[in-house]
């Protein structure tokens, strides 16, 4: 299936999408129009490092398209029903996190590319850099923990920007563990990072000054109980970067947040103090009153 080898991996990604999934034919151009050269350089480096060969890039393009189309189908239903279909955490874990083939071919490459191709995702990453990583740099942070590292996108960002930092990721999905390890190794940071296959609800995690947890809360039945565990692992004076996805009916989202105030109330209920907030919309509402996917990110102490 692979073919295009234009000047860059980014050109090829656009070409694969345009040829097989015309509805996504302009996503790369739109990203460039919104975020310019820094975005293109960063995205290109990621594609070139993780999907160097045309076959790998072509598969990642298909994975992204299937991931996004599945979400769009669910979004249409969500606009009508305003609820997520009932699903337990166990069911989501079995259907998604432990389905190795699905995780590896669709979910993880889809999610990774979405960090660049979805404007609210990319804006959230920039907020992470400017508000959280910058403080870590000033504080000469030496260690961090990421819970639910998924693709490894956020851990890798930290390892890349802070050359002396060491980190640990906690994951329950073997496929996510492998993908994160692959990404971290491909960028050359394997000696500063490890992933533990462990549910933090089962066994205490280590304590740290700097904690990251991106888009895990909406995957849980009881986010406040989970947040209390995160709070307990934060060393005195430590800070956490915690986010949630709202109105986003992904296959494995079981806890529906409609407004960012709900996330804030849960963070406070778990004992955190809010310091900074970022809320980003995926797109304008398609009609007045229709729900719009959002991400909400918090720096908390």
């Amino acid at each position: 299936m692979a073919e295009p080898t234009g000047a860059t991996h980014l050109d090829d990604l656009a070409a694969y999408l345009a040829a097989r999934y015309p509805i996504f034919g302009d996503v790369v151009d739109r990203g460039f129009a919104a975020f310019g050269t820094p975005w293109a350089n960063e995205f290109e480096a990621t594609l070139a490092t993780m999907f160097a060969k045309p076959e790998a890039l072509s598969l990642a393009a298909s994975g992204y398209a299937s991931f996004a189309l599945d979400l769009m189908r669910r979004q249409v239903r969500f606009e009508r029903e305003r609820t997520y279909p009932a699903k337990t955490y166990e069911e989501a874990a079995r259907e998604v996190y432990h389905d190795e083939a699905y995780m590896t071919s669709e979910y993880l490459p889809g999610l990774l590319l979405s960090h660049y191709l979805w404007p609210h995702h990319y804006r959230q990453a920039r907020f992470f850099d400017s508000a959280f990583v910058a403080e870590m740099r000033v504080a000469q942070a030496s260690h961090f923990i990421e819970v639910g590292c998924g693709t490894g996108f956020y851990s890798r960002r930290l390892l890349q920007q802070l050359p002396d930092i060491r980190g640990v990721g906690y994951e329950i999905s073997p496929a996510s563990k492998a993908f994160t390890e692959g990404q971290v190794a491909a960028f050359g940071f394997a000696d500063r990072y490890e992933v533990l296959l462990q549910d933090i609800a089962d066994r205490d995690m280590a304590s740290t000054q700097w904690l990251v947890c991106v888009e895990v809360l909406e995957h849980l039945e009881d986010p406040v109980a989970f947040l209390r565990l995160l709070r307990a692992s934060l060393a005195p004076g430590g800070k956490a970067f915690i986010t949630a996805a709202l109105n986003a009916p992904h296959v494995d989202h079981i806890y529906l947040y409609v407004q960012s105030a709900e996330v804030e109330a849960q963070l406070e209920a778990a004992g955190f103090t809010l310091e900074q907030t970022f809320v980003g919309v995926a797109h304008p509402p398609r009609a007045p009153g229709l729900p719009v996917p959002l991400v909400a990110a918090y720096i908390v102490a």
């Binding site: 097989r20 999934y21 015309p22 509805i23 996504f24 298909s62 398209a65 299937s66 189309l69």
Partner: peptide, 8 residues
Amino acid sequence: DEETASLL
């Protein structure tokens, strides 16, 4: 998926 993304 390819049909879904192509029938424009």
